[in-house]
Write a protein that binds this DNA or RNA. Structure first.
Length: 468
RNA sequence: GUCCCCGUCGUCUAGAGGCCUAGGACAUUACCCUUUCACGGUAGCAACACGGGUUCGAAUCCCGUCGGGGACGCCA
């Protein structure tokens, strides 16, 4: 049997982190067993589905690299099929028309809640024989006796009493089909073998199984993956702290890092933390999916992102970086080779966007100011800076080593600690307290710019002297 | 309220009756490295929700309590 798994989001918003994780697990499962991964857009909610959301989901999947073998299928294109199946069920006496008004249903619900009961449809139209007029829905005739049981590959055996279930609506009064119905029809038609979805769907599974039975179809295997909770411990949703995966791109995360973080949320392979895509596919096993919900933790994501920043080949980083260069409107055409800048910066940042903003001083003029300049570019620094500037002017072979030599020689002559000499220079040329080692920084910034900035710093020191 | 599920360091997790004075990772603390910031290295802090069983022996099995989450829509 070839595995056929699917990801079935509803396009009512962007692809968020929980959805992405479900998609990843489903994708991994198909890839692991050489099966097919199918994308299905569950857009039966005409009110809330939007084409923008569809695009956002597609974009998210694409960014993460979760490619699909079939689809995207749109449920709105299959309405005729659902209608046909619904009518078939009515004819077979497995479903029926219900004429109850929304008002009556609402009242019923309130009463049941007031009586501390589980709200359920009372089955008033279930045995209706005569055809009535007026708006109606089609309801499934759920078995009233016995129980439904299934073996979840993560949660184990789950048994629910049919008495807990009610007659769910298959087709609305406007003739549009509902979720629980479409999933089953589609999963049958698309020959889905493994349903991988969030645990929030576990309660729907028994009623869906009853539908499979009514349609005389074999049920798929179920893998319900635990929820991802927000930092507040509540279900992560669009309205609850969860952000679009695309926002992680914008904030400078690598897709590799997001995938790696996500795969470890609810799944493990011993103590291993780092998984490349190929490795995930090779090692993924439903047996190692955990049962309990996980809390999203940004600092670990940052750590993983940093890991990939440090270890990914420079070409790959450059590819990912181009988006941020564009976003931050950085012009790297005049200045050092960007790859060299990335090399010295990548060990000291956590995100791509941070890397780009840190590289600014290699390409653009800097403005001295703030506490860093005030504390370090004082009259006392004038002598060192002047000597260094003179020293730099004389350098014919502008490189890390010769620059470093000037720095150490100056510190020695003035009998100062290296830090005393280096910090003013650092601030003078980068405008910042933190930078890569000075030698390489100076080399990359280039002679012309360095001398110009030292001059600027000297002026700043002198201005400070005036004030005193 | 009813039903379903879950419960190991702050967080993600390892753990399938003795290997556990509970391991790893992130975060955090201290130190080392160091011209800054990082990186790296070393060490530290820190958990089996609670109570009963079962067993020679329980984080692991059973029951209860408590806690958390999810579901209960003409949403998906």
């Amino acid at each position: 049997m070839t595995v056929r798994s699917r990801f079935a989001p509803s396009p009512t918003g962007y692809l968020h982190i929980g959805g992405a994780r479900t998609a990843l697990f489903s994708w991994l499962y198909a890839r692991r067993y050489g099966g097919k991964f199918i994308l299905r857009i569950e857009d039966t909610d005409l009110e809330r589905s939007t084409p923008e959301a569809v695009q956002a989901i597609l974009e998210g999947m694409n960014w993460l690299g979760l490619n699909y073998d079939e689809g995207p299928f749109y449920q709105t294109n299959r309405f005729a099929r659902y209608q046909e199946v619904a009518e078939e069920l009515v004819r077979a006496g497995k479903a029926y028309r219900c004429y109850c008004s929304k008002e009556r249903l609402e009242k019923l619900r309130e009463e049941q809640l007031a009586n501390k009961q589980k709200p359920k449809y009372d089955g008033r139209c279930r045995e209706l024989t005569e055809i009535q007029t007026g708006p109606s829905v089609i309801r499934f005739k759920n078995p009233t006796q016995g129980e439904v049981a299934f073996e979840d590959l993560v949660c184990g055996r789950i048994v629910v009493n049919n008495a807990e279930l009610d007659d769910l609506i298959l087709v609305r009064s406007d003739d549009s089909p509902t979720y629980n119905f479409c999933v089953v029809v589609d999963d049958i038609d698309m020959k889905i073998t493994h349903v991988i979805r969030g645990t929030d769907h576990i309660n729907n599974t028994p009623r869906q199984i009853n539908l499979f039975n009514a349609l005389v179809a074999k049920t798929p295997h179920y893998i319900h993956v635990p929820m991802i909770l927000g930092e507040d411990g509540k279900k992560l949703s669009k309205r609850h702290g969860s952000v679009s995966v695309m926002q992680y791109r914008d904030e400078g995360f690598l897709p590799q890092a997001v995938l790696n973080y996500l795969v470890r949320l609810g799944w493990s392979h011993g103590d291993q933390e780092i998984f490349g895509l190929a490795e995930m596919i090779e090692l993924f096993d439903a047996k190692n999916i955990s049962k309990s919900a996980a809390t999203f933790n940004l600092s670990k994501l940052l750590w993983i992102n940093q890991h990939y920043l440090k270890t990914l080949p420079i070409e790959e980083l450059l590819k990912q970086l181009s988006y941020h260069i564009h976003q931050q409107k950085l012009d790297i055409s005049r200045g050092p080779d960007f790859a060299k800048v990335v090399n010295v910066l990548k060990d000291r940042v956590k995100t791509l966007s941070e890397l780009v903003s840190s590289s600014r001083c290699f390409y653009e003029n800097i403005v001295l100011g703030g506490e860093a300049a005030q504390k370090n570019l004082k009259p006392g620094a004038i002598e060192a800076l002047t000597r260094i500037k003179t020293g730099f002017e004389r350098i014919t072979d502008w490189n890390e080593e010769s620059l470093h030599n000037v720095l150490t020689a100056t510190a020695e002559i003035l009998d100062l600690k290296m830090g005393k000499v280096a910090q003013p220079v650092r601030i003078a040329v980068t405008g910042s307290l933190a930078s890569p080692p000075l030698g390489i920084t100076l080399e990359l910034i280039g002679k012309e710019r360095v001398l110009q900035r030292l001059e600027q710093a000297l002026l700043y020191c002198q201005a400070a002297a005036q004030e005193v």
